[in-house]
């Protein structure tokens, strides 16, 4: 196992480099560059630019060079100095910009993730065991409502309802008066209040999929011959279910769970924009729209590492859940 992991980690290095080139290339594909979007923004506020100024600013940011030169400089900075470059729109090092939002992003994603898994896996088991019961249908309908409603619209509707009933749309992570204030019970309470809508919106979006997958997997497992054997041997239903069936049914969930690493760090982008959550998702979205190359590039690079690590993690999980897969060299 250890050899397998270390080999996989080693393969990761060229992969990351390869992907970083592709990613960097794609980011600069849309026409225009950071300067054109920046000028468009400032001109909207009637700031005046002449063409000399624009050319000078391009040169100053190195935007007049071809993308591969920009890439080379950037990747060299990362490899030699651990310097992820400079965010044009924030005018500070990329790393500063990213770390500023890391805490809130992790807090929100982990809460919603926890909600998603803690709710949906038991719900899926229940649905499978009590197939076609009222509870099964109820869970399905709740899940489908969450899944069937586009997140952004769901969030807006909940915010407008909240505004109509309580006079407060619950925007953001915390009420204005608590921003820049030290943590207190009142603030914590306020944060929890503000977490309700995001957890519902982001949580239900994924629960449905998980409940359905879990349910169908478990149904497959329950009717397998080994269950009959186990039953015949006198094992308790509980033991059969949890020790064998559930474990096997988790397989497809496990094979993709590694990839949710990225969503933990990004947060749900569109919902976060709509609900004004200070997470990385909207930041990345803005960076991509503005072609803030190094910010977007660095972030996507980190995500790549996460995806690759996540894949390895998934493979390990798979092997753990299903002892037959041991990644010995196949024929």
């Amino acid at each position: 196992m250890l050899r397998f992991i270390s080999r996989r980690l080693l393969v990761m290095i060229p992969m990351v480099l390869l992907i970083s080139v592709i990613v960097f290339f794609v980011i600069q594909l849309p026409p225009g560059d950071f300067m054109s979007s920046y000028i468009a923004k400032m001109e909207a506020s009637n700031e005046v630019f002449d063409q000399n100024t624009i050319a000078r600013m391009r040169a100053q940011y190195g935007l007049d060079q071809p993308w591969y030169v920009q890439y080379a400089k950037w990747i060299a900075g990362i490899l030699t100095r651990g310097d992820f470059g400079y965010s044009f729109s924030y005018n500070r090092p990329v790393w500063d910009v990213l770390s500023q939002r890391m805490g809130t992003t992790l807090a929100i994603s982990l809460t919603t993730m926890a909600f998603t898994y803690l709710f949906s896996i038991p719900a899926g088991i229940y649905s499978a065991v009590k197939q076609y019961s009222f509870g099964d249908y109820l869970l399905s309908v709740i899940g489908f409502l969450g899944m069937g409603t586009p997140n952004f619209l769901f969030a807006i509707i909940l915010m407008v309802i909240s505004y109509n009933w309580f006079g407060d749309p619950m925007l953001g992570l915390v009420s204005q008066q608590f921003v820049n204030q030290p943590m207190s019970w009142a603030k914590l309470l306020d944060i929890l209040k503000h977490m309700i809508i995001p957890v519902i919106v982001i949580g239900t979006a994924n629960t449905c999929g998980l409940i359905r997958t879990m349910r169908s997997q478990l149904l497959d497992e329950i009717s397998r011959p080994y269950v009959l054997t186990a039953r015949a041997k006198g094992l308790s239903e509980k033991r059969i279910l949890y020790k064998y069936c559930v474990r096997a049914a988790l397989n497809p969930i496990a094979s993709t769970i590694g990839w949710s690493l990225t969503s933990i760090f990004t947060g749900s982008t569109i919902s976060a924009i709509v609900m004004n959550l200070p997470t990385q998702g909207p930041l990345l979205h803005q960076a991509l729209l503005n072609q803030d190359m190094y910010l977007a590039g660095s972030w996507l690079l980190l995500m790549t590492v996460m995806i690759l690590l996540g894949t390895i993690l998934s493979d390990i999980l798979l092997a753990w859940l299903d002892p037959r897969i041991r990644y010995v060299k196949a024929r």
């Binding site: 390869l18 991509l288 690759l308």
Partner: peptide, 15 residues
Amino acid sequence: IEVLMSFPTLPLWMA
């Protein structure tokens, strides 16, 4: 698959 997974779709779509 890993390469494709890392493709940023937003700029691709914009482009």
